[in-house]
Design a protein around this nucleic acid. Structure first.
Length: 832
RNA sequence: GCCGGGGUGGCGAAAUGGCAGACGCAGCGGGCUUAAACCCCGCGGGUGGCAACACCGUGAGGGUUCGACCCCCUCCCCCGGCACCA
């Protein structure tokens, strides 16, 4: 043991400041030393198989290499690391990899601004951030690092595209797409927030373009079935709401006097109310608009359609504004098939072309939007559901007996819907139909820094996917990537001109690149087999590691990354590539760390806390522990710069107690109390780590340290109890503070490495105190506290309680009606 | 508007039917120091009281219970998501 010589050294050298410092906790040198040692020993290299150990795959979301790691990365990654380390100590062979989500707009924008090539900018950032991550002391297995912008990786991103294409899950269509004028590219629905570009905050406009889509809606039903996932309920709910399943019917409406037209289809969730239809509405972009508009209405309709086209999403979605300007009559009438009555056909901007059929039957009596529209345009309102007594002058969307509905009259909603659908099917004009709010995933981006879509356009053969043995389609380096609204790749003759692999004739390469969410939809499948040149992931590696046992990351990805990754995994499963149905068995979303002012950290607000400076000042272990100690991990919250000193003091006390212990004597009786504290703490800390309650785990270790310090202040302690407590404390500390734990383990004679040790088992007999203080209540009010054995029988506890003057005075002259005794907790005497 | 999460000391929080405020920050008092910092010891919800102690106290109001921060009902506020999806 080195502790005794350490202690005496610091005692004899008190006069010298240098010598005194030598005994103090100094994280800097310790952390550098052990990081170098771990790297040299490959301590965190994870083989695919270790005899006698089961595999467990832990994953925290990989970062975009924007330049510097920020506190948010530390907040997400270091507790995740502690969790992975804990499971490693519990005997699992734990994979905990890291990589970079390296394609994307910032690289390109930085390149445009600073004249540096996106590739150079990105790889410099990656090097920098990898270094910063190494300073965390995390157990990342860097041998498996992935970089989505490297050809070794995007070759497989392109391979995925080809597989999806072959399965009919990737298709091109001309569609009105969300266009961000600032980013000069299209965006997926998920990337548009409140009508603005999620990244640049610019108002998104609609633009008609040929675009590539992934048919994620084919998996809508399966993606919806997420109840059994061990994920936070709110995230599962967000996904279900995003997918937005709604059940109803679709049927055809003929147009009065126009037997030359087939009519139009409408979707409704309330076919039971169809007898109350008093008008119909088409989206302004509906394909029939031109054909049905009457000459008298032509000018008004054209003017309206043009105005809607010019209106941006924000104004269109706003419920404010003049209602009478939001629609126009076409002059045509449709026939309600339920009662053969003609109803006027309107256009209105509240009907969306991208949902359902882009046309609705309007039943103002039972739909609030239709009600408002009918009021504004003076259209009739016919109730077909009996509203409750005293219902006012507004739409009634609830349940009630049908009325004014011929053969549906008297039926309640559920039954009426079924009967109406059956009738539509009998008549051959409609059928049961399920619609989803979820749209297909638009993956085309008209930007340079992304994986090229591996497709050729051949004059003879049409769209031809690039054969797998010709992948990757390399991103050319010498391209002018100033944003023009056109794909930059289109400007490169050398890139565009190609040969058709089918007919050998001339072909043009697709010049759009893929949304970077495609890259991140499968990266977790690559880590298990990061260097495989023949497949994205081989069968052995997939079997060894997939699916991910524990994923952690921010819930801002609930409806994007997490949904896309589930979609990819299901496709991979269908291809026989991976085991199971879901990519992430468990998912946990940590909260968001905010600036000291309680607002989102941002350079413009000047409230950014730089992790490098925190590490420099306090050490990585201290910074890690402080982030865990702040509060519940899923809650996040402001980063209080002043609070970290408390954690530093704690680690200093741990250091001092262990490197400078009291005189150790053999006094097992006296040591029992310390041992009970140690084992109770061990039990709690294990449970807390497992449940990701890092804040209370740290607090419990602080308490044990305080106990240790008291024992130390007393001058002497029982040798066995002290040594055992110190050993347990170091092991408990290891997942949260890996460096100082390693150093103290080494100094107390532990065999290298503390991170290869097993999590110790607590002794259940030592988790219960010999006597506990219980509360004594009279009529629910605490009147005294008495010390009894935790399992003392009621009469013993009661006798002790009645011996207290404060209790006996309360009982005097009153009848005891009832006594409630909870052993180890309290005794409540109810009197009258 | 709808759907989630939350509201506890000056601050971050703990306790999820059993002693409210563990642990930590800031603060106050004391020790060490020429001094300051570091460090160490003590105090620490409010009101009254010298004190023992009493009363009040977990956003507001009501309820269930021997007992409620915790469960139920009504309302207010904050944060996140969705928002003409027929």
């Amino acid at each position: 043991m080195t502790t005794e010589s350490q202690a005496s050294e610091s005692q004899t050298a008190e006069s010298s400041r240098d010598a005194a410092d030598r005994g103090r906790y100094q994280p800097g040198p310790i952390e550098a030393k052990w990081q170098a040692r771990w790297e040299q020993d490959d301590l965190y290299h994870t083989p695919d198989h270790v005899p006698g150990k089961q595999n467990r795959y832990h994953l925290t979301m990989f970062p975009y290499p924007s330049g510097d790691l920020h506190v948010g990365h530390w907040f997400a990654m270091t507790p995740s690391d502690a969790l992975a380390r804990y499971f490693r100590m519990r005997g699992w062979n734990v994979l905990f990899p890291m990589g970079f989500d390296a394609f994307g707009l910032p690289a390109e924008n930085a390149a445009i601004k600073g004249g540096k090539h996106p590739m150079a900018w990105t790889s410099a950032n990656i090097d920098r951030m990898r270094g910063q991550m190494k300073a965390m002391g995390a157990m990342f297995d860097w041998d498996r690092e992935v970089n989505t912008s490297s050809p070794d990786y995007y070759q497989w991103t392109q391979w995925w595209f080809v597989q999806l294409f072959k399965r009919g899950l990737a298709y091109q269509k001309k569609a009105t797409a969300n266009w961000c004028p600032d980013c000069n590219t299209t965006l997926a629905n998920e990337q548009v927030v409140d009508g603005r570009c999620e990244r640049s905050d610019t108002i998104v406009v609609q633009r008609e373009m040929e675009q590539w889509f992934f048919r994620i809606t084919d998996y809508a039903e399966e993606l919806l079935a997420n109840e059994d996932l061990d994920w936070p309920e709110h995230v599962k709910l967000m996904q279900r709401n995003w997918i937005g399943r709604s059940e109803g019917a679709e049927f055809t409406m003929r147009i009065q006097g126009r037997d030359d037209l087939e009519g139009f289809r409408v979707f409704t969730t309330r076919p039971d109310t169809a007898f109350g239809m008093t008008f119909a509405v088409l989206a302004p972009e509906h394909e029939l608009v031109d054909a049905i508009t009457t000459p008298e209405q032509r000018a008004a309709v054209d003017e309206f359609v043009e105005r809607v086209r010019r209106t941006n999403e924000i104004d269109r979605l706003s419920t404010e504004g003049a209602l009478d300007k939001r629609g126009v009559f076409t002059g045509a009438y449709a026939i309600n098939p339920f009662n053969e009555q003609p109803v006027p056909i309107y256009l209105a901007d509240y009907v969306l072309t991208s949902y359902g059929t882009g046309a609705i039957m309007a039943v103002p009596a039972q739909d609030e939007r239709d009600w408002d529209f009918a009021k504004a345009y003076d259209l009739p309102i016919v109730r077909t559901v009996t509203p409750p007594e005293g219902w006012g002058d507004e739409a009634y969307t609830g349940d009630g007996p049908a009325m004014n509905s011929q053969w549906l009259d008297g039926l309640m909603k559920g039954e009426a819907i079924q009967k109406a659908i059956a009738w539509l099917e009998e008549q051959g004009i409609g059928e049961r139909k399920v619609n989803y709010r979820l749209r297909d995933w638009l993956i085309s981006r008209q930007r340079y820094w992304g994986a090229p879509i591996p497709v050729l356009h051949c004059e003879q053969c049409g769209i031809v996917p690039v054969p797998e043995d010709q992948l990757p389609v390399l991103l050319p380096e010498d391209v002018e990537f100033l944003p023009t609204g056109q794909s930059p790749l289109a400007l490169s003759e050398a890139f565009v001109n190609a040969t058709c692999p089918d007919c050998g004739g001339p072909a043009r390469r697709e010049t759009d690149t893929m949304d970077t969410f495609v890259c991140s939809s499968w990266y977790f499948m690559r880590y298990p087999d990061a260097h495989n040149p023949d497949a994205p992931v081989g069968p052995e590696a997939a079997e060894a590691w997939l699916p991910v046992d524990q994923y952690t990351g921010g819930s801002e990805h609930a409806t994007m990354h997490l949904l896309y990754a589930r979609f990819f995994y299901k496709v991979a499963r269908d291809m026989g590539l991976v085991p199971g149905d879901e990519p992430f068995t468990r998912y946990y979303s940590q909260g968001q760390i905010l600036g000291p002012d309680g607002r989102r950290m941002s350079k413009s607000r000047g409230n950014v806390v730089a992790p490098d400076a925190q590490v420099e000042k306090w050490g990585a272990d201290c910074f890690r522990a402080y982030l865990m100690f702040l509060g519940p991990w899923d809650q996040g919250g402001p980063y209080d710069v002043d609070g970290i000193v408390g954690v530093y003091r704690w680690l200093s006390r741990v250091w001092a107690a262990i490197t400078d212990p009291p005189t150790l004597v053999d006094a097992p009786e006296a040591g029992r109390s310390l041992l009970i504290d140690a084992h109770s703490t061990l039990k709690k800390v294990g449970e807390d780590y497992e449940a990701k309650r890092f804040n209370t785990a740290i607090a419990a270790m602080m308490e044990l340290t305080n106990t240790l310090q008291k024992a130390r202040d007393a001058g002497e302690a029982d040798r066995a109890a002290w040594n055992d407590t110190v050993r347990l404390l170091i092991l408990m500390l290891a997942p949260a503070c890996p460096h100082v734990a390693e150093e103290l383990w080494d100094r107390t004679g532990g065999a290298y490495s503390v991170h290869l040790q097993e999590w110790p088992a607590f002794d259940p007999a030592l988790t219960v105190r010999d006597t506990v203080e219980i509360a004594v209540q009279v009529n629910g009010k605490v009147r005294a506290r008495v010390a009894v054995a935790p399992d003392a029988p009621e009469d013993v506890a009661r006798a002790a309680a009645e011996g207290e003057s404060n209790v006996s005075s309360q009982l005097e002259g009153r009848d005891v009606v009832r006594v409630i005794y909870v052993p180890g907790r309290l005794l409540n005497i109810v009197v009258k």
